[in-house]
Amino acid sequence: MKILHIIPSISADMGGPSQVALNLVKALRDIGEDAEILTTNYGMGEVKTGDRQEYIFDETLGLSVPVWFLPYDPPNLKEFIFSRAATGWMWQNLANYDILDHHYLFSYLPTCAAAIAQFKKIPYTVRTMGQLTSWALAQGKTKKQLYTTLFERRNLQNAAAVHCTANGEAADVQGFGITTPTITLPLGVNIPDEIPNAKQRLRQEYNIGTDTPIILFLSRLHYKKRPDLLLRSLADLKQSNQPFYAIFAGTGEPEYREELVQLTTDLELTNDVIFPGLITGDDKECLLQGADIFALPSYSENFGIAVAEALVVGLPVVITRGIQISPDIEAAGGGKIIEDTQESLTEALLTLLREPEKRLEIGRKGKAFARETYSWSAIAQQLATEYKKICYANKP
């Protein structure tokens, strides 16, 4: 099959969805499928545009996939990313593919691709990326209602399938009034090489004492992820005389980052918290393998790639029920699933900080669960089977 994944941007600043597209296309190619990516150069620096190129997305492991980068038209909205060049390219080239896989809602590239696909009778699937949760739909509600009326509902209804990563996401699709068949498959995570001295190396890097537990927040600095709630819980830990050091690794809008830095100062946490920015590659693996607890008190996540990355290296996670894979993690005993409150978060963190043996046990369970469940190879095989069913059903 010739498969095209369409995503507005694969910039690291766009968070987990970029990694999903890159790793899934790599996994599909590894099992013999001819998969590519169409995207824009938004957030990509000096990347070459116009021609298909082999894009290296993980220099440490030497991982690459074929990508078509088309120039976007500034000024632009991060969520929308309009591109006249991509529009023309899609009219000329989409019919060369057997099936399309669209990432994101409420964004120009997948919206335009869906319209062209319907006109040219090309089957396509849609990934809602958690954008149909009640919380997500409440953000920019008026704009999303208008966009839904004009484009999105029609595009979802005319898709061959909607790809969901958890049962909760499939329920959100149905709750939105969409009757299109859903495919529920989790996303995958790469199993990294073990870094034997990760804990020592991480403590040396940030000058952390050997007996001080490290709490890791590894995600975009965005109010949806609730880093502010975590900071307030850290202040509770400090008041209870519980030692810790917290690393908030990720990028975000400069204004919001400054708000978090100011909150850190107001809560008298400047000696206990650091914001190192975006961490990638080997340094990111060292963070995951060297930390003691992973915390993500997000309002809403359809999957949470960073959560799976933490689990796969045996890092116990503390997450909210808004993360839609939380029921599976809870059943596996791989983490603490909390209510969306400061009190609940503080209690979970205190329990894990004060009981290191419990931390290790939870980490072991989470690691076994993640390595069995979140295999890119197995997921790619299952997805390829679904693609083939769709292509067969759409043959004249």
Rank of each mutant, 00 (worst) to 15 (best):
residue 16 G to P: 08
residue 237 L to P: 11
residue 190 N to W: 06
residue 190 N to I: 13
residue 231 L to P: 11
residue 76 N to Q: 10
residue 204 Q to I: 13
residue 248 F to N: 08
residue 322 G to I: 01
residue 387 Y to I: 02
residue 102 H to Y: 01
residue 281 G to F: 02
residue 189 V to G: 15
residue 163 H to Y: 01
residue 282 D to N: 13
residue 42 Y to W: 09
residue 94 L to S: 14
residue 211 D to W: 11
residue 234 L to N: 04
residue 142 T to M: 12
residue 235 A to H: 12
residue 109 L to Q: 06
residue 297 P to M: 00
residue 73 D to A: 08
residue 93 N to V: 05
residue 347 E to K: 13
residue 156 L to I: 09
residue 366 G to A: 09
residue 228 D to N: 08
residue 348 A to W: 10
residue 217 F to D: 01
residue 64 S to I: 01
residue 3 I to M: 06
residue 217 F to V: 05
residue 177 G to W: 04
residue 190 N to S: 12
residue 7 I to C: 10
residue 134 S to G: 09
residue 48 K to C: 10
residue 80 F to M: 10
residue 169 E to T: 03
residue 47 V to W: 02
residue 330 E to C: 06
residue 66 P to D: 10
residue 133 T to G: 13
residue 192 P to R: 03
residue 121 K to P: 08
residue 18 S to A: 15
residue 267 L to K: 10
residue 327 P to G: 03
residue 298 S to W: 03
residue 102 H to F: 11
residue 390 I to A: 11
residue 346 T to S: 15
residue 273 V to I: 15
residue 24 L to F: 13
residue 332 A to N: 04
residue 16 G to C: 12
residue 36 E to P: 01
residue 52 R to E: 11
residue 344 S to W: 02
residue 215 I to A: 11
residue 68 W to L: 09
residue 254 P to K: 05
residue 62 G to F: 07
residue 376 W to K: 03
residue 137 L to C: 15
residue 69 F to K: 00
residue 325 I to F: 02
residue 96 N to Y: 04
